[in-house]
Design a protein around this nucleic acid. Structure first.
Lengths: 214, 214
DNA sequence: AGCCCTGATTGATATATATCAATAAATAAT
DNA sequence: ATTATTTATTGATATATATCAATCAGGGCT
């Protein structure tokens, strides 16, 4: 059972009236997690529709060498792994918290019956699914289509926070080793595309970087 | 304007009555393509909800070296690129026919207004979107998580038609060169996992192959 | 200050796969 | 059936990136 006021704040449910929110509250519950905790593992049974409410959650696959391939890094109030729940299949990837966080878990069978037929909810659900597709297409574009140099260029151009991240974490996200990332940064610095300021870098020539991945 | 009988045969519309089919026909049209023709290019404006009705259609991205990364190979009556149409964004990938084929193009604005609010259609649309997600997750699992040997093993275990495909096409789909594919086949043949029969191979030891990718 | 400890850098080497080039086999065309 | 054309195989080499190993910061902590 979940606090109604918190549900009201979630864009997904913004068009629900008080009565509907009340009903939603009876089929949902809140769970808190600390940094590092795992929300679910790949191949676990998917049982609840899960909504991330606080914190950063990464969704990843593990390859045979135990490298993580990060598919998503969710930071906003967003549905997580709704595909698996909708299809009734096991989770295709694992999810772990990078910070303290919390989720709301909703009984999907009941949610489907009572809410998913409403056009507003259905459209929010469409939107959520299409966002996931866009995100996965980006992962593919980033990791399969581009080489290491282009991946780094693209990522630091499109994500301001990238240069503030710890390099080993960024390397993991870009699916390369910290050594390779370090060498790419060095190359960019030598070319004057970025510049070392303190212990971090800043972008100096975004246009030049952009050419590298387009 | 589209033939109603053909629309009736598409699972997507199986629950529509004659009147609705008639309406749908007025907002859709059929287009035929020959082998090799391009349905749309990456970055083209997406304007119609597109349904593949005949033929094999591949959806792919092109990397800087002009390699194609195949995201989907559609062979059944299925929606194509509905994400882009729904989001109103340009196509994130290109699509070309591998055989002669045909599609039905539906005016999405009108479709959304008149059909997408109906629960049956909405659920078919959900299903289509979740299938796309599953497919993209598989592409990632195949191409980023696994190495060449494991990719081939997985693909020939899970797709009977794989060994009938032309090797250069299969190599492209598995995102490797024909040379690498040839060497992997040779290795599998030497290990007795597959066997050459005429100009093609057959699987001899599926269990052994399965171990390679799990 | 000095001491840890995690993270970053650098160099040397290994490895998988691509590329290039030559040939062989299979399929299609005459 | 013979030729032409596409596709597959094989070997030699190149290349990008991983791996391993050593050293080098920077940021807390006592």
């Amino acid at each position: 059972m979940q606090d109604i006021n918190e549900l009201r704040d979630i864009t997904f449910f913004e068009n629900l009236n008080s009565e509907e929110l009340e009903q939603l509250a009876t089929i949902s519950r809140k769970r808190k997690f600390s940094k590092g905790e795992v929300l679910f593992y790949e191949k676990d049974e998917s049982r609840f529709l899960t909504l991330l409410t606080e914190g950063i959650l990464k969704v990843y696959k593990t390859d045979p060498k135990n490298n993580e391939i990060v598919l998503h890094r969710f930071q906003y109030k967003t549905l997580v792994a709704e595909m698996a729940v909708f299809e009734g299949i096991p989770y295709p990837a694992s999810a772990a918290f990078e910070t303290d966080g919390s989720v709301i878990e909703i009984d999907f069978i009941k949610f489907k019956k009572s809410f998913l037929y409403s056009p507003d909810i259905a459209f929010a659900f469409f939107k959520s699914l299409t966002q996931k597709i866009k995100c996965l297409e980006d992962v593919i574009a980033l990791n399969i289509v581009l080489d290491s140099t282009a991946r780094v260029a693209k990522y630091i151009c499109e994500n301001q926070e990238a240069l503030q991240m710890k390099h080993n974490q960024l390397a993991q996200y870009l699916h390369m080793t910290p050594e390779t990332l370090s060498r790419v940064f060095k190359k960019f610095a030598k070319l004057g595309f970025i510049e070392k300021v303190g212990s971090s870098y800043i972008v100096k020539d975004k246009d030049a970087l952009t050419i590298l991945f387009e």
